[in-house]
Design a protein around this nucleic acid. Sequence first.
DNA 1: TTGAAAGCGCTAACAA
DNA 2: TTGTTAGCGCTTTCAA
Lengths: 337, 337
Amino acid sequence: MSRKITMKEVAKAAGVAPMTVSRAFKSNSAVNADTRARVMKAAEELGYVFDSAASNLRSRKSGFVAAIIPSLNNANFAATIGAMSSVLEQHGLQILLGYTGYSIDEEERLIAQLLRRSPEAIVLTGGHHTDRARKLLANATVPIVETWDLPENPVEHVVGFSNTTAMRELVDHLVQTGFDRIAFLGGDATGDLRGQARLAGFLEALGRHGLDASRLVCAGPAPIGMREGALAMADLLGRFPDTEAVVCVSDLSAFGALTECQRRGIRVPEDIAIAGFGAYDISAYAHPTLTTIEAFSTEIGRKTGQLIVRLLRSDGPPAGPQKEEICPRLVIRQSAP
Amino acid sequence: MSRKITMKEVAKAAGVAPMTVSRAFKSNSAVNADTRARVMKAAEELGYVFDSAASNLRSRKSGFVAAIIPSLNNANFAATIGAMSSVLEQHGLQILLGYTGYSIDEEERLIAQLLRRSPEAIVLTGGHHTDRARKLLANATVPIVETWDLPENPVEHVVGFSNTTAMRELVDHLVQTGFDRIAFLGGDATGDLRGQARLAGFLEALGRHGLDASRLVCAGPAPIGMREGALAMADLLGRFPDTEAVVCVSDLSAFGALTECQRRGIRVPEDIAIAGFGAYDISAYAHPTLTTIEAFSTEIGRKTGQLIVRLLRSDGPPAGPQKEEICPRLVIRQSAP
DNA sequence: TTGAAAGCGCTAACAA
DNA sequence: TTGTTAGCGCTTTCAA
């Protein structure tokens, strides 16, 4: 293969200065239409490829937005990233993704690593970070957005919802339906802080209604998927066979719990009611359909993207930390009517 | 906030030359241990952040691997990316992701865009590309890997499997079980070429067995999810009520089809058998469990990552296009025993 | 093991 | 609208 073609060579071929080629490649730049056409033709013929690294270095703009999520293997986080991505790409921004595996130490490592690429904004999932991570973020001079939660001490901007409040609402619904013996199926205290917040909401709600809150089954460390849901359900049925309703930390675990019941011939919701969290596709298509909480993961991504675009564009004085609260919606379906 | 700290300043603080700081930040570089410690201390105190853009420009290595997938919103592609990512990050490589939305025109646009970041390798999903995309790839001087398929005319390297062959095997199984009236539930001819390859395998197998291959239900353009599967199943039941078995283009559509049957009181597999493709989690936890094809999406990612590492490291003469064929496995479960 | 000089390819800033 | 000059922060290359 031929060696690398630079702007200089395109400029020479088009009979203009390199700077004009540079301008021709910026869509909003003032260049004569004929000149631009000539430049583009020369570039195409030479097989020129614009070099972002050089551009970034000189202009001090990377065009990157760093986004850190617990796992790609989760349809809701994936949906958030997808929606954010499509907003940002319309503004020439590209997402640089990192996965923590539900570990804040890994998050710290990722932040340090992504910072080297000079992102123009940083998006985090959740509000719990290591001290060093907070320090790194404080030193960064770019907008920071925490999502999927409403941290008590936000680093800066927030686009999220209260997992606790949402769960409370779900439990209220179950109590109003007439259930007294309600269990919670979720992960352990390591890593998944959104799961912990949901458990907190569960406990609060039961306490408020004066109900017993000891029916807790732990499915192990995050992520809690179908497998964990099924195993934990088996555990629950053994330990608390008179349970009337189960609240699961996610729809995936709720589905696992549901199918475990089906395998045992236990009817849902007649014998036991099941609810999930997250409004994954499966909650709408399972049979029976699953009662759940719609957290609007796409909306979170879209709003986060829009917030970033707004923050980067604003020429005026910085507006201070922004907070966009998403309001989750209780979706009552067949599994817990 | 303070302005940007550079290597020069760290060097001054540590009493060394910038070049020594540079070396200290490369883990494999020959620097005195004391010197390195002093440099690192100075860097930490000053809040220095290494600038990858400058490093990339000078060293002509971006540390990026471009990966293009149809959609993040698909657990199998997400698994491939996740596995590839964890292999590559151990070698200091970072994935730059792009989503085509199952469009080869969008793929072309993404290739052109990602090329500007000087990726050290490019990973594609599938083997069907626009002419211009092929030209862009041919001009790139980095390894290209096509995955999730075995293209007839590969661009260069391949890590994939034959969707056609895998589907043939599944159909053979159904025929051997004794089914004659077998339907296919899949998407239309736009975009999803792996789906088309599966349909081709279905048609070939039925032809070979001398069976009627007219029971085809089209669920529309990709992606074909649970919703599309349920709707297409309803369509199928209306048009071909005597169908004995349905092969679905994916597990998600198979699950949609399954629950549509359950809603109508049609028993699976007693009244109708259903098979999927892809061995998604749901296939193992649905009730009944779903017969499917395990395509080893994680394996594809891992092997692709390893191939890239090998190709980038090799100092010898280029070894020519590599081809790693993954062998999918038929997983016989309850829905189509 | 460490340092000095040069320059990667682009664009900010200024000039015409 | 176009051109000139300088330099972004790092690493290659060569020398000590």
